[in-house]
């Protein structure tokens, strides 16, 4: 639940930042478009299986909010979108991840392959955003809070997976490995966040 709430908080922080400042400066449209793709391919099971009302509502919210974020960046506040600095090649993520999900999955069915694709893609979808921060050498505090909440969410899931492994015998190798990779990608950022942002400074990297 803490993981889900952290994820929800991250999405709300980002939407509020864009909406209140009427600007998406410093935000990678590519990462946001990848997240929309992640939620779309993962939550196709909305049509096939019902888990709980909570589960359904969260899925719908994640899908709708991700497309809304993409709409804000690429249409409504397009003039403020910093495309010159958002130069990470998304196809270098989508194509290998697509290949891997066809090769390594737990069941060779369309829905399962798309789910696997979404798990793999999510683990690396933040790279365009982290690349953008490293390229411009700075991030606004609010962007840092967003990244911290978003990174924490998968880290919190790891604790839940450990719990579920011991008490329910539940273990999803694909989700666990991807979740660990995803969390590791944030480690450098977590370090900067704790040493700088929490001490009232904004993230600036040496040129």
């Amino acid at each position: 639940l803490c993981g889900d709430m952290s994820h929800l908080l991250a999405i709300i922080i980002l939407l509020m930042k864009i909406w209140k400042t009427r600007s998406c400066a410093g935000i990678s449209g590519k990462s946001q478009a990848l997240f929309a793709l992640v939620f779309t391919t993962r939550y196709l099971d909305l049509f096939t299986s019902f888990i709980s009302l909570y589960n359904t509502i969260m899925k719908v919210f994640f899908i709708v909010s991700s497309y809304f974020t993409v709409f804000l960046i690429y249409f409504k506040f397009k003039a403020t979108y910093d495309s010159n600095h958002d130069t990470f090649r998304a196809e270098f993520l989508v194509v290998p991840v697509g290949g891997l999900s066809i090769l390594v999955n737990s069941e060779f069915t369309p829905l399962e392959i798309l789910w696997t694709f979404s798990i793999y893609l999510e683990s690396v979808a933040i790279l365009p955003q982290l690349f953008m921060v490293s390229k411009t050498g700075e991030a606004e505090s609010i962007t840092s809070h967003y990244l911290f909440a978003l990174g924490s969410y998968r880290a919190l899931y790891i604790f839940n997976w450990i719990y579920r492994y011991y008490f329910e015998g539940f273990f999803d190798l694909i989700a666990v490995v991807s979740g660990c990779v995803q969390t590791i990608l944030y480690c450098d950022f977590f370090y900067l966040y704790i040493t700088k942002v929490l001490r009232g400074k904004k993230i600036t990297l040496p040129a």
Binding site: D45, I51, Y157, G169, F170, F171, D172
Partner: peptide, 10 residues
Amino acid sequence: AKAAQFHDEL
């Protein structure tokens, strides 16, 4: 450990 029958996580 058993594999997930369906995905109950978000």
